[in-house]
């Protein structure tokens, strides 16, 4: 699926993550900022990548600013940002 517009979801508050999605040409590229990047960087990227793949988004630039979000939060914020970026209004139940 093609990114129709740049979109954002989530906040920069503690236990949350801000996900920004932008049109890209070169696969799923993630730029992650996190205090726990050493411990959980790969895990966070993995959750974002898997969620985007489930939504059939193959080319996208991701800017993620993590403030200690749990996986379920990362997934929820990624889905919300993706649906905004794809201009979809109905939830993708199968991914949830």
């Amino acid at each position: 699926m093609e990114i129709k517009t740049t979109a954002i979801a989530g906040t920069l508050e503690s236990s949350d993550i801000q996900i920004m999605l932008m049109a890209g040409q070169d696969g799923i590229q993630i730029d992650l900022e996190s205090d726990v990047i050493k411990q959980f960087g790969n895990q966070i990227k993995q959750v974002i990548t898997t969620t985007l793949q489930q939504l059939n988004i193959d080319n996208v630039k991701v800017r993620a600013v993590d403030k200690g979000a749990l996986d379920c939060v990362i997934k929820a914020r990624t889905i919300a940002a993706a649906q905004r970026a794809l201009a979809q209004t109905t939830p993708a139940w199968e991914v949830l």
Binding site: I8, T11, L12, E13, S14, K67
Partner: peptide
């Protein structure tokens, strides 16, 4: 962070 978040949104 709250202010930055709100401004960006």
């Amino acid at each position: 962070n709250q202010i930055a978040s709100a401004l960006i949104d």
